[in-house]
Each structure stands twice: as structure tokens, then as C-alpha cells.
Write a protein that binds this DNA or RNA. Sequence first.
RNA 1: GGUCCCAUCGUCUAGCGGUUAGGACACUGGCCUUUCACGUCGGUAACAGGGGUUCAAGUCCCCUUGGGAUCACCA
Length: 470
Amino acid sequence: MSAIRLRFAPSPTGYLHVGGARTALFNWLLARKLGGTFILRIEDTDVARSTEESVNAILEGMKWLGLDWDEGPFFQSDLFPVYREYVQKLLEQGKAYRCYCSAEELEAKRERALAEGRKPKYDGTCRGITHEIPGKPFVIRFRAPQDGVTSFDDLVKGPISFNNEELDDLIIQRTDGTPIYNFTVVIDDATMKISTVIRGDDHISNTPRQILLYEALGFPVPRFAHVPMILGSDKARLSKRHGATSVMAYRDMGYLPEAMVNYLVRLGWSHGDDELFSREELIEKFTVEAIGKSAGVFNPDKLLWLNAHYIKSGDPTRLAELLLPFLLERGVDPAAGGPELATAIVTLQERARTMLELADGALFYYRSEVCYDEAAAVKQLTPTQLPHLTAFARQLASWDDMTSAGVEALFKEFCAAQGIKMGMIGPSVRVALCGVTTSPAIYDVVAVLGREETMGRLERAISFITDRPE
RNA sequence: GGUCCCAUCGUCUAGCGGUUAGGACACUGGCCUUUCACGUCGGUAACAGGGGUUCAAGUCCCCUUGGGAUCACCA
């Protein structure tokens, strides 16, 4: 393993959303490409907002996408003593100080500053207090330099610099003694020896403060790569109103993880004109340099196209496994009878874009009591069709070759013998077997269903026509 | 509002000084076809605007405009 160490550090305040998933993916890809280490760290210092359900949801999302981690998950809530130690160190060195301003006072000052058009920056009231005030609650602030420039060379955005006067003395420890994000992230990235921080570009403005902290603590500063945001169709930050944002919601909507990975990686990263990437190709071809600088709009249509591609080209046996829950949900259990699922799937792959569509399309194979679509029945299951269907059933009964090609030959021979065209028998048989006018190729359907089941369904259709009142 | 980031078809993007500005999704026309699809061939569609630099600018610089992010005892 190389010394490259990367991490994904979500906060457990919700499910794994597509933006976070892409950040995780980029980190994972680079780690795998360079033979580095990928670390998962849960940033749960905000005890009030963090939940165990969220942690589980995030882990589940990572696993679904196939993003395995080498170390962790580490929980910041387990590291409070460590943070306390470093806070103490800064305090002793005079690089941090106690601030006794109350949250209310601060809020009032901030609003006043904003109203007067000034910067809502901490005014340094407590900067000069040298002795502790017993009994009075306090937070701890980092004593940030008030002049100079802090800059860094972002791996995706290029050189970025901030005037230190824009930065204020940020709080690193709350009144209750718990540490705050901008501080813990620095301690953890430093102690975990993270070499490159890949994260969303909404963190750019935090970066100079963090760099100042690295320097104050005497830690080496890691490299930063800020990846652009993912936007909704109206170019606003992606949110629920743009549709699903949870990666697990996409699994439930019938999406394959490889489609999601392929979609996500191409949103903001490219490799020439290539669109389709296997996991291996991604590991081989991924580079941070090829990550784009601008925000991208999440395009569900393209995701759907990719999903259709992976269903079309997927291994039927694996698809069968993944499809099972969707089938059971629809009250069908292939284990209870009917054609082998993988065999049925082969006939459906190229006409399903999601596992939901695949499941819906497969239902008729497992329902002998075909439910005829009203319009289809009126058009195809008519007295005129009766002689054709009857004759066809008779010929099928003595037909040997039940492969798809064999069935096709049967149809050809039947049509020739009857002096009719395929169009006069095909559609009726389709409705008799499937109940609807759209289905896989009829030869395939007969082949998959088998002679016995096909005969049964034909006879049922014949009875249906016979019994139907005019 | 301050600060920071960004800017090629509707969308994702290729392009890294000289191209008929390419690909993909979506849309659309033809072909294939027993249905629906798939597939296949073709089409519509972009360098935000203005200044520079240069023999030459989508490519480099500046400004404008537009979009986004961030300004918490959230992460």
C-alpha cells in the first residue's frame, strides 16, 4: 500500500445522498487506483442531529455501491478526549481563548452587523481576557491571525487564496465541552494521516480556517480537491423536490448499483468521449485532474439509460437474484412453479429499463390465469380467431422442437399450411398467452412457457371466446 | 451584502492557440420487425457579452453579466 490515504467523512444526519455518494466514489476510486488506503469516518460531533439510523443508512448505501473501506468506520464521538487534549494545547499556547459571550449576544451582534451592512464577524470581545471567569459558561475560540493571506493549490480548482482579515476567531469547542466540526476535521485528518482531502466544494470557504488550524497545531497540511456540487434541473442545489436524492431510493426504484456508479462518476468527471465504464476500467482510468470544475445537473434520463444498458447486458442469473424481492412484492414466487426465472429474464432484458419494469414484465410468465387486457381481448380474442387458435393448438400438441427457433418454424409451417399471414395468428396467440399486446417475441414466450403451459393458456383463451356473450 | 468558486448544444461533456467545434442522454426522421422494445443510419441543437494578447482565441488575460457556495455554540 502506498502512503496515499483518503477518507469519506459523512455526518450521520440523513441517508447517503447522491452528492455524498459521488464524493465517496471519487475517494474510493483514487485509493484503489493508487493502492492507497480508504478510510470511513463518521462525523457525529453534533450529538443532537446525529442518529444511528443515519449511520446504518450510510453504511448500507456504501455497501450497495460496492465502496468498501480499509479502516473505520471511526466515530468522532469516540474521540472527544483527543480533541479536548488538542484544545488544551492551543489554550496553553495562547492560540485559543475562552469566550464568554452568550449565543444570544452573538446572534444579536450578527444581525446588527448584517443590518448595517458590515461583516457578521466576531468582534473579538473576549480576545483579551487573560483569566478565567469562574462559574460563567464559555466556548473556546481559535485565535486566528488578523492579517496576511492563506492560500492553497486545489487539485481541481487551482490556486485559491483568502485574506485572513475575512476570517474570524472560530469556535472550536462548545459551551458543553463538545468540539466543533472545523476543529475535529483538522485533528482527525491530521492524526489519521490523510494525504488528500476530496470533498464537496461547499467546503472551500472552510479550508483557509482549517489550514490555519493545521499550522497552529504544527501539522502538515494535506492536499485538497474540492469537487463541484450536484444541482437539480433548475440549477439549484439538488434536493428532494428534484426527485429522489437517496441512493437507496434508487435501488428501490429498480436501479442497479453499477448504473448508479457509472452515472455518478461521469457527472463531473470524464475520460475523452467514453461513457460506459466497468469498475475495473474506472479504477484504471480515474484521475483527479480529469474532474471538472463546474457544477453539474443531475439528469435522471441519463441514469435511466445507463440502467437500461446494464440490465440489457447483465448476467441473467444475477439479475434473477436481484429481481426476486420485486417479484415477491408483486405476489409472485418463481420457486412455486413456472419457468426458470433467469430463462424468462433473457426474453425481457432488452425491454426493461428498471428492475421494476423487469418485474412487471415477468409477471405473466407466472400467472397461468392470464388476465386479459380488455381492449386487447376485444380486438384479438374474437370468434373469427377461434378456428386459427384451435388449429394452432392442435399442431402445437404434436410439435417436437420447443426451442425458440423451433417454435418460429412451427409458426411458419402453420401459416403456410393455413394460407394465412403471421399477423393473423401472432397477435391472438400473444394475447392468449400474455394477456396484453406488448410482450417479448412470441416464439420466445412459447419456448419459455413450454408446451403444456402454452396449451393450457390457448385452451383457456378458446373457452373465453366461446363463452363470451356477444 | 462581503468573500470564494464556476461559465461549450436543453443536460453530461471532449477540446488543453490553427477543428466542417466531437461524443453521450433527451428530442426527432428513416430502416429493421408478428407486438413492445432493442439495434442501426440520419437530423435539430452550444463556445454568455465586451475588451485585450496573438499572424491566429472556445482555448491566455481583464471587465461585465449570469449561476453557485459560504458567512452557526451544523457538518
